[in-house]
Structure formats: C-alpha cells, structure tokens
Design a protein around this nucleic acid. Structure first.
Lengths: 148, 148
DNA sequence: ATAAATACTTGCAATATGCAAGTTAATTAT
DNA sequence: ATAATTAACTTGCATATTGCAAGTATTTAT
C-alpha cells in the first residue's frame, strides 16, 4: 500500500495550482487567500470575523487586515452586530458576489474539464471517495478539529 | 452532481492543516514551504534548482533564497554540476535526510490514522480515486502542465 | 460594581513573494 | 572562431503576508 503521502501531496499541489489561476475576474484581481475569504463568507450566512478566521485557520489579526483590504476594493462589507457590538458581521457586496460567483463558475468548469478525463463510473467513485475522505478527516484526532 | 468545488476545497484545506503540523523535528523547526523543498529534493536524484522550483511552481529567485536558508541551517547541499557549470545540483545533508524522513513518517502516521476511520474497502477505493484524479489532472489542459 | 472573558484592531518585526537587472556559463548563429 | 542568444541562477528592490503582543470596546460572571 505504498506511498500515500506522495499521492496526496501531488493531488493537493495540483489543486493549489488550479486555485491560483482562478483569481482574476473582469478588472478585479485578488489573491488566493482573498478568494478563499470570499468563498467562506459566501457559503455562510453573515459570519463573524472569528468564524471565518477559524475556518481559514488564520490569525485574527492577519484576517482583520485582509478584510480591510477587501473592503477597500469594495468586495466585502463589515457591520457591527446589533445583538453583540463586539462582533463584526461580514458580507459580500454586489460586486463581491459577482466575483465570488465568477470564481465559483471558473472552478466548476475546471473541475468538469478534469473529470471529463474519467469514465462516468470513475467520476462517481472519485466524488464518493472525496466525501469519505472528508468524513474520515473530520473524525480524525490529528486533523482539523475546528473545521466546518 | 452538486458542489464539487466545496468537496475539494474542504479536503485540500484539511490536508493543508495536516501538513502544517508536521514541520518540527527534534530541535529543527522549518516552514511548510521548506518541508516541501526537502520533500522534492528527497524524491528526485540530484535535481537542479530549476527542476525543484518548477515542481513547486515558485519563482526561481524566491526559491534561491529558500535554498540559501536551508543551507544555512545545514539541511541542504548545493554544488555546481560538473557537466554544466551553470547548473546547481541540490541534495540533502545527513541531517536533511533525517528531517525529511521524520516528516515523512509523521505524515504517513497521520494518513494512516485518517484511513483507520474507513473500512478496508473504502480505503482501497479512496487510494485508487486519488490516483485516477492525479492522472486526470495530469491530462487536463487547465492544470499543472509542467508537473511530475 | 469589579473582574474576567470575548471580539476585534493596531504596532511591530520577521518572512515570503515576484519582477527586473545583473553575472557567469553554454549554445547557436554567422 | 567570434559574436549573439539563451539558460541557470543571484541580488536588489518594493510589496505583501504572517503572527505575537499589547491595546480598546463590549459583554458576561461574581
């Protein structure tokens, strides 16, 4: 059952490269990290800074600055929660949603293209495997405790 | 065939977190990037700077500096090729090999632990899926042309 | 009412990044 | 054979990213 690590490393590296290409939309160009922030805000409902920073496993201070720059370019909103004024609620601007959607479409297209090199049977197997893997990692003691 | 991207993003993020934990060995502490460099040097036979920088999709200048710091802490060797004196041949010191091996063991153990949450059948399926995925990505036009 | 915890923000200081410009060595014209 | 081009790096910026420590403001506990 030879080298698991090699297989994973290779896959993750490739997926990382894929991700990198996907960050330019219209005239807006954002970094990989920023695209992940948009992604996380998009898939949650009005998350707090903490929540997203935790999801990204980033220090809150670093994250705070990233949010500032995303606000500056008009993609992200940040408003104090009325329930608890310490908390800042994050959201996407209309432009932010457009960018997030465009990146999403782009990634989906890339994944489809990759999947097109496999048979239908293989595609199903791969998807199911990724799900299994995610569940196993979620249950694992060594990995990613506070995620999703 | 809902959200492929979400599945992949989640998996890659988790694997990234896994990777991060694995960079301290004995008294040596290295960064994630540095661990990847050790890994790439280890699995090739006397690669050149270019080769490893390409594999990591890093600018050569950035890579050059990383190698310098790895040499400074005594993990990596760099020698001019006798065949072509422009080329620098990279290698691991004895200590570098020790570190690379320790990280490798650590990662293997983590992966085993994760796999232990699946049945034997699932484990086989997952491994085969990762292989398929790697092949599909290698064939893909959108991803990772110059890899492996 | 005071203490302690929570959710951030800001000030460093260290590190990482890529582009452009340089150096040296090898190839390819001419 | 010499000159021009290409290749493999290295170094100098300028910028971006990171995390820790220390601060502020708000909420919760006692």
């Amino acid at each position: 059952m030879e080298n698991k690590r090699e297989l994973f490393q290779s896959m993750v590296k490739r997926f990382g490269l894929l991700n990198k290409n996907c960050c330019t939309v219209d005239d807006v160009e954002i970094s990989l990290v920023q695209s992940h922030i948009l992604y996380e805000i998009d898939r949650r409902e009005w998350p707090s800074m903490q929540q997203v920073a935790d999801a990204l496993a980033t220090d809150l201070s670093t994250f705070s600055r990233q949010v500032q720059s995303l606000m500056k370019i008009g993609l992200v909103t940040k408003d104090p929660s009325s329930a608890d004024k310490r908390i800042s609620v994050l959201g996407l601007t209309e432009e932010g949603q457009k960018v997030a959607l465009a990146i999403q479409k782009d990634m989906e297209a890339h994944l489809e293209e990759i999947f097109s090199h496999m048979t239908e049977f293989e595609q199903d197997m791969v998807l199911q495997s990724i799900k299994l893997l995610n569940e196993a990692m979620a249950r694992s003691s060594v990995c990613c405790k506070p995620m999703y």
